[in-house]
């Protein structure tokens, strides 16, 4: 059974004239790595807020249609209940860390749940190790680099052992190297812990290789839902201002001139491999 299922979901913010998204139908299976993208204002962040009940509990407004996340209807359960199933990592690392040490920040959610102290300790240490920041545990979050802060944010939702983690443009404030390593951490959570990942991201060049599925939204609608290699072949993707990775653009340009690489490359490695294949067959 799907871990997230939305049918005919429509949402309008309070005081808004038109819905942020309408008639969204979506099924996400356990263990998927979904890349959710689309131009600014397309409704992707709004959709994510429905997964842990921030919509409707925090934002109000009117939610129509049906959504079930991890077997629960978010509108019927408090955000803190949903939080134990759905972890949420936000764009700005600065505004999602509250404590004065990394360790206390990671413990925050567990403390709120009122878990026994040694259970908290065990889970905090585990989450710090999985995200590779155990050595930073006594530091103050605001002294850390953006990349480290984002790892703290990930560790702090991971400690709650959710089945789903939603990340809303987690790399947009980071330099490319930190962005790359954050995406690698997310990939590991998905592959090794089988956590369902929903990643909202503009940086397809770094993220596409990890995704099992790309969903593109525009003007409040899902306009494309495909596995990455196929998604990039759709002209629609380009139409709505999704940044197609350069290696894919190279693939498309070569195809115009009749050179067909064996597959749509999702990383420079794959592109190089396919080009080598073509060169070798050309020689032979």
């Amino acid at each position: 059974m799907a871990i997230i299922r939305a049918s005919n979901l429509t949402y309008t913010y309070p005081f808004a004239e038109k819905p942020a998204f309408k008639n969204v139908n979506l099924e996400i299976e356990r263990g998927e790595f979904v890349l959710l993208t689309g131009p600014s204002g397309c409704g992707k962040t709004t959709l994510c807020r429905c997964f842990n009940g921030l919509i409707p509990h925090f934002y109000g407004g009117t939610l129509e249609g049906e959504i079930i996340v991890a077997g629960l209807k978010p509108s019927e359960h408090a955000i803190y209940e949903m939080a134990q199933h759905v972890g949420f990592v936000f764009q700005n690392p600065e505004n999602q860390l509250f404590a004065l040490t990394v360790e206390k920040d990671v413990a925050f959610g567990l403390e709120n749940l009122g878990l026994p102290r040694d259970e908290i300790r065990r889970r905090v240490d585990w989450a710090l190790k999985v995200t590779g920041i155990y050595d930073l545990k006594d530091r103050a979050p605001f002294e850390l680099s953006g990349g480290q802060q984002q790892r703290v944010a990930i560790a702090s939702v991971l400690a709650m052992q959710p089945e789903i983690i939603v990340l809303d443009e987690p790399t947009s404030f980071l330099d490319p190297l930190s962005a790359k390593s954050i995406l690698e951490v997310i990939h590991r959570l998905n592959r090794e812990l089988n956590i369902t990942v929903i990643l909202v991201e503009h940086r397809l060049d770094l993220a596409a290789r990890y995704a099992s599925r790309v969903i593109v939204m525009d003007e409040g609608q899902i306009i494309l839902d495909e596995e990455p290699r196929k998604a990039f072949l759709e002209e629609k993707t380009k139409m709505v201002g999704v940044g197609i990775p350069k290696v894919v653009r190279l693939y498309l340009l070569l195809r115009e001139d009749g050179i067909n690489l064996s597959r749509v490359p999702l990383s420079p490695d794959e592109a190089a491999e396919s080009i080598v294949e073509v060169l070798e067959s050309d020689r032979g």
Binding site: L177, K180, K246, V247, L250, P268, A271, A272, V276
Partner: peptide, 15 residues
């Protein structure tokens, strides 16, 4: 400088 090589450069490094 904590950057990464441009995608196309990465391809050509391998070629």
């Amino acid at each position: 400088a904590s950057l990464v090589l441009p995608e196309i450069t990465q391809v050509f490094m391998r070629l």
